[in-house]
C-alpha cells in the first residue's frame, strides 16, 4: 500500500474505476465512456480508472463521486462492527480497500470535509480490525507448527476471507514472526554444540 513507483499494489489500486461526472463538453471522446455518442457531454457519468480521473479532475473536466465502497451504507456497517465487514469484496480485484481509499483521499482537497471523513473512516477501521488480524495470525502460527489441522476455527473464516490486501500482508508478517519465535522457544541447543 505504498506510493512507490514500482509497487504492484499501487498500480493495481490505480487501475480501480471510479465514478466521475463530466463538467465540460469534450468533443470526439465519446468512445471513452463506452457509449455510442461522439462527444462527451456535461453531466454525463462514466466509470474512469483512477490514473485517468486524476488528470480529468485536476484540469476541471470532471467531478468525482465517492465510490459506494466508502459510502454511507458501508460506513454504518463499519461503525457497527468493523470486523464483520468483508473489505475484500468491496473493491474488486486485489481487494485493496485501504489503498484505493487512500488514492481517492489524495485526489480530494486536503481540507475538504470529505477528505477528513474518509481518512477518519480508513484509520478507525484499520485500528479496529488490526487486533483481530494479529490474533488470527498468531492463532494460525500456533496450530500450524503443532501439526494439527485447522479445524474448529470456522468463526474466523469469514473474517479471514474478508481481509483487505494490506491486512493480508500484516497477517503474513505476524504469522511468520510468531512461528519463528515459537520454533525458537521449542528448539533445543543440546545437540547443536
Amino acid at each position: 500500500m505504498d506510493d512507490d513507483y514500482y509497487s504492484i499494489d499501487a498500480i493495481l489500486a490505480e487501475n480501480q474505476k471510479i465514478q466521475c461526472t463530466f463538467k465540460k463538453e469534450i468533443p470526439n471522446m465519446g468512445h471513452l465512456t463506452g457509449g455510442n455518442e461522439r462527444d462527451i457531454k456535461p453531466t454525463m457519468k462514466a466509470q474512469i480508472p483512477v490514473w485517468l480521473a486524476r488528470t480529468l479532475f485536476f484540469s476541471g473536466y470532471a467531478d468525482l463521486t465517492m465510490p459506494p465502497a466508502y459510502a454511507e451504507r458501508v460506513r454504518h456497517a463499519l461503525d457497527a462492527e468493523a470486523t464483520s465487514v468483508k473489505l475484500s469484496n468491496l473493491v474488486g480485484q486485489g481487494g485493496l480497500w485501504y489503498g484505493f481509499g487512500r488514492l481517492i483521499m489524495n485526489e480530494l482537497d486536503d481540507d475538504s470535509p470529505d477528505t477528513q471523513e474518509l481518512s477518519k473512516l480508513l484509520a478507525t477501521t484499520f485500528k479496529a480490525r488490526l487486533p483481530a488480524v494479529v490474533d488470527q495470525a498468531q492463532h494460525f502460527a500456533s496450530i500450524n507448527t503443532a501439526g494439527s489441522s485447522g479445524g474448529g476455527a470456522d468463526a474466523g473464516i469469514a473474517f479471514r476471507e474478508g481481509l483487505d490486501g494490506t491486512e493480508r500482508e500484516l497477517f503474513n508478517l505476524a504469522q511468520e514472526s510468531a512461528k519463528r519465535t515459537k520454533l525458537w522457544y521449542e528448539s533445543s541447543d543440546r545437540g547443536r554444540r
Binding site: M1, Y98, Q116, S119, A123, F126, L170, L173, E176, S177
Partner: peptide
C-alpha cells in the same frame, strides 16, 4: 522482536491513512 514486523507495518499503514497536518487532533 516478535511483535516488530506487524507493529511496524501497522503503524506504517496508519501513517498513510491518517491525514492531519496539525498532528494528532484526529
Amino acid at each position: 522482536n516478535e511483535i516488530r514486523p506487524h507493529f511496524v507495518k501497522g503503524m506504517e499503514s496508519l501513517v498513510k491513512l491518517v491525514k492531519d497536518p496539525e498532528g494528532r487532533h484526529m
